[in-house]
Nucleic acid binder design. Structure first.
Length: 353
DNA sequence: AAGTCGGGGAC
DNA sequence: GTCCCAGACTT
């Protein structure tokens, strides 16, 4: 018995042939992406650059491929190696990440780069990678498999969906996720773990999609209980989400001789470590008041912005600055600073331009 | 176990 | 409007 079937047999004969069918499909339909090497190249012993694999995986956490792609190109052009990134200024990296969201990723990206540069090399195992900041269960498995060809599983949202359907998983989603992770771990082929991980993600992204899965061309149809039932789109069965409360506040475009006033936000919490415009608290009761050091500001409109766990409505006000700014604020050219701001502040600045 | 943390595209 | 995306971290 070949190694591949032997690995699958631990999960029972039910999944015999599944890894081979998936890899065969991947050989013909793999997506071409900037951080990948081709499936043919892996066969000739080519291994991707761990730095590029890691950087892409961090950027792709809860982020679509089209959105991350431009950032990946910019980062690798500016910082071609992990040593280059480790030597970068914090503010430059945060500015380059602006607009990509989940800014703790950027803070941990720098911490991780500096740890790896100090060590002199990347850990090559899943457990070793898991110790680095910003690398959780998924990313540790992905980097181990993709960059180091270790027998590790990379279970992301795509893989959860694909196997929720294959199993027709009807139990508590928390329990089903654990079951899926165990199963995928058993199915990873010893000789091609990297391609197996990419193949599952490609299948989830292009065929086993959330809304209208294209079962007619799916290489795993024969193993899929949800397809047999006839309504694959019913899976995965996730718990309902909470409604987002609305918060209110004000944001100010303070114009001075050399630009607009910005601050560097505290390194913890929402938009932590990013540049921001002067703003009040954001409160659900709307009683945020005004910034006391600003006088005579004129309201020019409102911006709406949706964060992960609340919706924000910000009144936008403009004012000409006269005296010195309070500690923590500085003037920046209003044209160039926009690129370094998180989206909510970009919207406000655009309204005033 | 639940909450925090961004942004945008597809529908 | 809803859903979700190559999730991790804190409490």
């Amino acid at each position: 018995m070949a190694k591949r079937e032997k690995a699958a047999s631990a999960a029972g004969a039910r999944f015999d042939g599944l890894p081979d069918a998936l890899l065969d499909w991947y050989g013909r339909h793999a997506r071409t992406l900037p951080w990948r090497i081709g499936p043919g190249e892996r066969g000739r012993g080519v291994v991707p650059d761990p730095y590029r694999v890691w950087l892409a995986e961090i950027m792709l956490q809860q982020t679509t491929v089209p959105h991350a792609a431009g950032y990946f190109e910019a980062f690798t052009r500016t910082w071609p190696t992990v040593e280059a990134l480790a030597s970068a200024e914090d503010g430059d990296v945060m500015a380059a990440w602006a607009g990509l969201g989940y800014y703790a990723r950027a803070r941990n990206l720098l911490k991780c780069a500096r740890e790896v540069a100090a060590r002199g090399s990347w850990p090559r195992t899943e457990a070793g990678l898991r110790e680095l900041p910003g690398i959780g269960p998924y990313t540790a498995g992905a980097v181990a498999a993709l960059a180091f060809n270790q027998r590790a599983a990379a279970v992301d949202g795509n893989v959860d969906r694909v196997f929720a359907r294959i199993l027709a998983a009807k139990g508590e989603w928390k329990d089903e996720k654990r079951r899926i992770a165990d199963l995928v771990g058993e199915l990873v082929p010893e000789d091609r773990p990297g391609e197996f991980a990419e193949a599952l993600m490609d299948l989830g992204a292009t065929i086993c999609t959330p809304k209208r899965p294209n079962c007619l061309i799916c290489p795993l149809r024969a193993w899929c209980a949800a397809h047999a039932e006839g309504e694959p789109e019913r899976y995965p069965m996730k718990p309902a989400k909470k409604a987002k409360p609305v918060r209110f506040g004000e944001v100010y475009i303070v114009r001075g001789a050399s630009g607009v006033a910005v601050e560097t936000r505290p390194s913890q919490g929402l938009l932590g470590g990013m540049l921001g415009l002067p703003t009040t608290e954001w409160r659900e009761d709307g009683k945020a008041g005004r910034l006391d050091w600003i006088e005579g500001a004129q309201e020019i409109g409102e911006v709406k912005h949706v964060f992960t766990h609340f919706e924000l409505r910000l009144r936008v006000l403009t004012v000409e600055s006269e005296g010195a700014l309070p500690d923590g604020y500085e003037l920046r050219d209003s044209g160039s600073v926009a690129d370094a701001l998180p989206s909510v502040f970009r919207k406000a600045l655009k309204l005033a331009s």
